[in-house]
């Protein structure tokens, strides 16, 4: 449905993002959709002269996702947010808040991820 969307694998992410940078695209943001046990869909949005391009990839549960904040510094906020709210393991973010950008200690871990069962277990353990 979305125009100019390319599906890529995790290993291609850094090279594709670098290519975007060479082509003078602006980093808009990244969106993340939780798929429950299948992990997450991550979509990176780029823009140039009001035309958008998107890179889409799927991260399985527990898989590592390299950070693009070395290429686009402004990606650091959104990557921290995804790490926190969805529990994606994003490595090497330029400034890593360690899960405390939006949430405090008392909050549930990765509240946006669809994983009801683990949350319930956690509550019981406390």
């Amino acid at each position: 449905m979305i125009e100019n969307m390319t599906e890529i694998a995790i290993s291609q992410l850094l090279s594709e993002t670098q290519k975007m940078k060479y082509e003078d695209y602006r980093f808009v943001t990244a969106s993340c959709v939780s798929l429950g046990d299948d992990g997450c869909d991550v979509i990176y949005h780029f823009d140039k002269d009001l035309e958008m391009k998107h890179l889409k990839l799927r991260v399985g549960k527990g898989e590592e996702l390299p950070s693009v904040s070395k290429i686009y510094f402004c990606a650091l906020l959104v990557e921290n947010e995804m790490k926190e709210l969805f529990g994606i393991n994003i490595t090497d973010i330029a400034v890593d808040y360690g899960g405390h950008m939006l949430l405090s200690d008392e909050e549930l871990e990765s509240p946006m991820a669809k994983q009801q069962i683990t949350i319930v277990e956690k509550k019981g353990a406390k």
Partner: peptide, 15 residues
Amino acid sequence: LDRLRIRTPTFANIP
């Protein structure tokens, strides 16, 4: 909806 994601302008301006 499955997902509604909002990227607001201030988010882009903090960097």
